[in-house]
Simulated assay, not measured.
Amino acid sequence: MLHTNIIEIKEKKLSILEAEDFISSSQFGASIFFSGTVRNQNDNKSVVGITYDSHDGLVIKSFEEIYNEADQKLNIKDKAVFIEHAKGYLNLGEISIIIAVACMHRDEAYVLSRYIIEEIKKRSPIWKKEHYTNNESDWLKGNPIVHEKN
């Protein structure tokens, strides 16, 4: 049973090549790469860049919790998982997050990748400030932390 992962917050440019190197293996039959990039429009505003800030320790903890929950809930035995999120200022087109997973089968890879990104968006303390063409900027409203009832 292979359980490997890399989980990081970086203040340098993220590279899909690092993710590819990490999850590459003839052991796996399916690989999924998700990358979020800075786009030029949001809510009818022209965006020129985004600043990401985070509580690094809590982000890493949340990524680890998400990985461990995925491990238990999805029951995918053999896998490799790579999660990195950028911190600091990013220009248009730059990568803000990379999630790369490798699994034995494609369905597992799709399910695992989707689970990870959706949980990160809901739970990780990462904030983003959009910068606009009119020299204004706004911190965007995040997702509320929702406590599920058992």
Rank of each mutant, 00 (worst) to 15 (best):
H55A: 08
I66Y: 05
I97A: 07
G93F: 07
Y67F: 13
R123P: 04
D53W: 00
K128F: 02
L140R: 12
G57C: 00
I50V: 08
K10L: 09
Q41G: 03
K13T: 08
N42K: 11
S26T: 15
G57V: 07
V111Y: 05
N143L: 11
S31Q: 15
I98D: 05
G88F: 10
H131K: 10
R114F: 04
L58H: 03
M104K: 14
Q27L: 14
N91F: 01
I32D: 10
F82P: 04
K45E: 03
A109G: 12
V59D: 01
L90Y: 05
N68E: 15
I83K: 01
I60M: 04
A86L: 03
E8H: 06
A80V: 00
E130F: 08
A102W: 08
I9Y: 06
E94F: 09
R123L: 13
I60R: 01
F82E: 01
I6C: 05
L140F: 11
S54R: 02
R106M: 04
P125R: 02
K79T: 03
A100G: 12
G57Q: 06
F34Y: 10
R106T: 06
M104V: 06
T133M: 06
S113K: 11
V81C: 07
N143T: 15
Y115R: 00
D138N: 15
S24Y: 04
E119V: 08
S26H: 14
R106D: 00
I76Q: 00
E136T: 15
E136G: 07
E11P: 02
